[in-house]
Amino acid sequence: MMPAGILGWVMAASCSAAAAPIAPPTPSMFDPMGEPASIILNITWLLIGICGAIAVVMFTLIGYAIIRCRAVEGDDREPAQIYGSSPIELAWTVIPLMIVFVLCMVSARGIFELELETPPEGATEITVTGHRWWWEFEYEDLGIITAGELHVPLDDNSVADMFLTLKSADVIHSFWVPQLGGKTDVIPDRINHLWLQGNRAGTFVGQCAEYCGTQHAHMLIKVIVEPREQFDAWVATQQKDAVEDPAVAQGKHLFLRTSCINCHTVRGTVANGTFAPDLTHLMSRSEIGSGVAPNTPENLREWVFDPQNIKPGCDMPSMKLTRDEVDLICAWLETLK
């Protein structure tokens, strides 16, 4: 009913988003952090302008009718019957057609600008695999496989281009980080590509946008855009095998004896499952269960004890470990930095 009101909300919301402190900012499309998101936002402003104008015209006409064309008490005569008017009707057929034409031209240009077949120069290429219910990120050039958190470096022009290859391991998901660009679906029998861009250091969040089953709500995506040196340091860490620490060997052996290893990989050990997130550098990530809880020692213990308590329906079962066994395993997991 109130276009101006809705517009006001959006403005207020994007301002508050811009002012957000340490936590990742609200993933608002009105707070773009790169070219794709900016192109979309510009088209959005055009849409708001045109549709806003149409709304103003229509509400004025309706408002005029409501205020000025009321029945008067005691006046029983019927008003003049007007059956139609060809020029007027022609006008409101042709003018909308022209508006549609202009909108189509402008937006079609946006489509061709945004849907890239090949990576832009200098882009980080990452293969994204959607799983129920977490994201796997593979940097094939760098030999890194990680989950949930995507690291990309800023180049000399302070731009971080990423070109994603999207695959699904099971059902349809959708990859969406609003501040970096639009979304693209992740489909099992199809390989899609997506160009995103960040233009300043920071953490940008998004989540799966296509309903994919019980825990669709917990498929967090964190994109960490960072300066080159920081990224290189991260890469160096990720490329190493798991840390060996004799102090926690007991926990490691326990882990390798249970069926954990059927699904999880810990490089440098016999664990090489691929159904679940790679744990080689588990502690370098800030979230457990794809955003269901922060990665703290207490949460990790609760998670390993019974994931179904924290993320009901997820594919990881409770391993029926005792609290002591959980402590041992978690003590080892906490060394996997």
Partner: peptide, 16 residues
């Protein structure tokens, strides 16, 4: 808002 959503680039942001 339907016209908004018909615009593909905007739809890439807000579909679903």
């Amino acid at each position: 808002t339907g016209i908004f959503l018909a615009t593909v680039p905007f739809d890439w942001q807000v579909s679903d």
